[in-house]
């Protein structure tokens, strides 16, 4: 029987309340939202908080707002809500693609975008999405909010820029004209982590790729395919360009052999999925 080690339970009624509790309990406390990453780790004693602070009542963190040139997503927004959102599908279809293959429908009823990002698992999908889309992350502490680029969010596996007395409150996806995006993932079965996955966003201008973001999942700790980005930026898309981007993304990936597949297979997937994601992103930018 797997049960977590003993802990004290607190329920936060608001973000301010949660921050007060974090301040009070210090590094021994952990926030819990969906709990579908934290509780399994607590069962295995990989994490052993003395205090668990339930933030499910902080419903003012559950929102999806199109705010001029930013898509604002509250940290407590469930995967199921993101998957069902027409606003998200229209403005950032890469998120919809990714949500469709995150965990399974029942888990998606509980898990949240904020929880996924803060878990910071190297194989986690929304991290790639936020990397590729150049998202900004809003973190609140007692002194108020601060906003950092996604590039500064991760400090390493399972480690983020969120300090023990802070909490992630919002994800901000910048919206620019001419955008198209897609997420391509290969998994062994529903609910599993990716063998490999790639997210791509393009911003088109007059038939050329004006700007691009390419994020990689589960193929090494370097989550952004910068060489592939540099190769496609400023070019008109065609099959050769997609293939070249794939090769460069694969060359920058650093996967390991594990039970999900060999490093060689994952590198192959990285190339193929990069090409597919880019092609689909371009098609979507053209309304196809």
């Amino acid at each position: 029987m797997q049960v977590p080690a003993p802990f004290d339970y607190e329920r936060a009624s608001s973000v301010d309340h949660a921050l007060r509790l974090l301040d009070q309990h210090g590094e021994d406390a952990r926030l819990i939202a969906g709990g579908h990453s934290l509780l399994p780790m607590m069962k295995l004693r990989l994490v052993r908080p003395n205090v668990v602070i339930d933030i499910n009542d902080c419903v003012d963190l559950d929102y999806i707002i199109e705010d001029r040139d930013v898509l604002r997503i509250g940290a407590l927004t469930r995967h199921a809500t993101l998957l069902a959102s027409d606003t998200v599908a229209r403005l950032a279809p890469m998120i919809t693609d990714a949500e469709r293959v995150i965990a399974d429908p029942v888990v998606r009823n509980r898990g949240t975008i904020g929880g996924s990002l803060c878990q910071a698992d190297p194989g986690e999908d929304l991290t790639t999405v936020c990397d590729a889309m150049f998202a900004d992350i809003v973190i609140r502490g007692r002194d108020g909010p601060r906003t950092i680029p996604m590039a500064d969010f991760h400090r390493g596996p399972y480690e983020t820029a969120v300090e023990p007395d802070e909490m992630l409150t919002e994800i901000r996806i910048p919206l620019r004209p001419g955008a198209g995006s897609a997420y391509e993932k290969v998994e062994r079965r529903v609910g599993d982590w990716a063998i490999a996955a790639v997210g791509a966003v393009v911003w088109m201008d007059n038939g050329t790729i004006d700007d691009v973001g390419i994020g990689l999942t589960a193929v090494g700790l370097e989550g952004v395919a910068t060489r592939a980005q540099d190769a496609v930026r400023g070019h008109a898309p065609d099959d050769d360009l997609y293939a070249q981007a794939g090769r460069l993304a694969a060359s920058q990936s650093d996967p390991i052999d594990d039970q999900r597949g060999s490093a060689a297979y994952k590198r192959h997937l990285t190339a193929e999925l990069t090409s597919r994601a880019l092609r689909r992103a371009v098609e979507r930018s053209q309304g196809r």
């Binding site: 329920r11 709990g35 668990v52 339930d54 509980r110 609910g191």
Partner: peptide, 26 residues
């Protein structure tokens, strides 16, 4: 016990949830 098999699914406020990965307190 690991939120994979789904036999423990119950409805919480009408939504299916895996009860092995939910604290009763929640």
């Amino acid at each position: 016990d690991t939120s994979n098999c789904g036999t423990c699914v119950v409805l919480i406020d009408g939504e299916p949830v895996k009860s092995c990965t939910t604290l009763a307190a929640m």
